[in-house]
Simulated scan of single mutants.
Amino acid sequence: MRPVLGYFGPAGTFTHQALRSITDDEAIAFASVREALDAVRAGEVRGAVVPIENSVEGGVSATLDELIAGSPLAIRGEIVIPVEFGLYARPGTELDEVRQVLTHGHAAAQCREWLATTVPSAQVTEAGSTAGAAAEVARPDSRYDAAVCARVAGQLYGLDELAYQIEDNPGAVTRFVEVGVAGPVPPRTGADKTTLVAYMRVDHAGALLEILEQFAVRGVNLSRIESRPTKTTLGSYCFSIDVEGHLHDKRVEEALEGLHRICPTVHFLGSYPRADRARPVVGHGFSDAEFDDAAAWVRSLG
């Protein structure tokens, strides 16, 4: 296994920016989330940074699906960065000269109002990535006048910043995860998150409620839940879930035991420190000490 990280590239994307927030070491860019995660499975890299959730667009379906598509992987950490876009052009280009804009579809959607208001006559074309858009605009013979991209991409390709923070939803963030091969769970910090995927045994009235009850009755809060198609039959779904807490918290451990009893399959995708280091609010009756006390009381009855 190479002692380097991989990431969903190319260089200059928000994923690259997230990677650089945790290391300045050599890293390998991959053209897709699937290729990045397959490289982890194959031992080509020791881990990979990929996007998993955006506060505006929601979950990143490619990552949610690919995490369970092959041999087991585990999330080792998360990174949250602000989603801030700028309009970048070749040196000498003025804002009122912009007629052709190139960017990724998600960036176009998140900057739609600003573009329509500020450069209303500009045609927006979608590219494979915001960094790729910046690279294209940097070419002297490019037919595109400007790219909507992250500042890191604009700087990487020597473009001028015509405007910054042009996103329509200030405060938007994207969450990334560092993924490695499955192994021992890191020690809990008290400010942890656990990710898993649960499958329904039979589709019936209350099937999702049965899954949710395993968390509710043990005081485990969910920070994300999304349905994903199982890719078997139409209408068959599994649920990708983030919970507040660590596998070794008694309330989380018992919730997973409950899921194992009622679900045909549960993929455990890791317990890891939260990026915001926020500690969950644990209600009365759900601390480890209270679980231990209750178990001791039951044993004393016999």
Rank of each mutant, 00 (worst) to 15 (best):
M1F: 13
R2H: 15
L5F: 11
G6H: 10
F8N: 14
T13D: 05
T15V: 05
H16G: 09
H16E: 10
D24N: 13
E26G: 02
D38T: 12
R46G: 13
G47V: 12
A48N: 10
G58D: 08
V60K: 00
D65Q: 14
E66S: 02
E66A: 00
A69H: 05
A69M: 08
L73K: 00
L73D: 08
A74K: 03
A74C: 12
G77F: 05
G86P: 07
L87M: 00
P91T: 07
G92H: 11
L95S: 00
D96S: 07
E97M: 00
E97P: 11
V98A: 07
V101W: 08
V101L: 11
T103K: 09
H104Q: 06
G105S: 12
G105F: 12
H106I: 15
C111F: 01
C111D: 07
C111A: 06
V124S: 03
E126Q: 08
A127Q: 03
S129F: 08
V137Y: 07
A138L: 09
P140E: 11
A146T: 06
A147T: 00
V148Y: 08
V152N: 02
V152W: 13
L159W: 01
E161M: 14
E167Q: 05
D168E: 00
V181Q: 09
G183M: 04
P186H: 13
P186S: 12
R188E: 09
T189R: 02
T189L: 11
G190C: 02
G190S: 01
D192K: 05
T195E: 02
A198W: 02
M200G: 13
V202C: 01
G206C: 06
I211Q: 04
L212W: 01
L212I: 06
E213N: 14
R218H: 15
N221H: 07
N221R: 05
R224N: 09
I225H: 15
I225A: 15
E226D: 15
S227E: 13
L234S: 14
S240A: 07
V243R: 11
L247K: 00
L247E: 04
D249N: 04
E254T: 02
A255F: 01
E257S: 15
E257A: 15
G258Q: 04
R261A: 04
T265M: 13
T265W: 01
H267K: 07
S271F: 10
Y272G: 00
A278W: 05
R279A: 12
P280K: 01
D288S: 02
E290Q: 04
D292W: 10
D293L: 10
A294T: 07
A294E: 13
R299G: 07
L301G: 08
G302N: 12
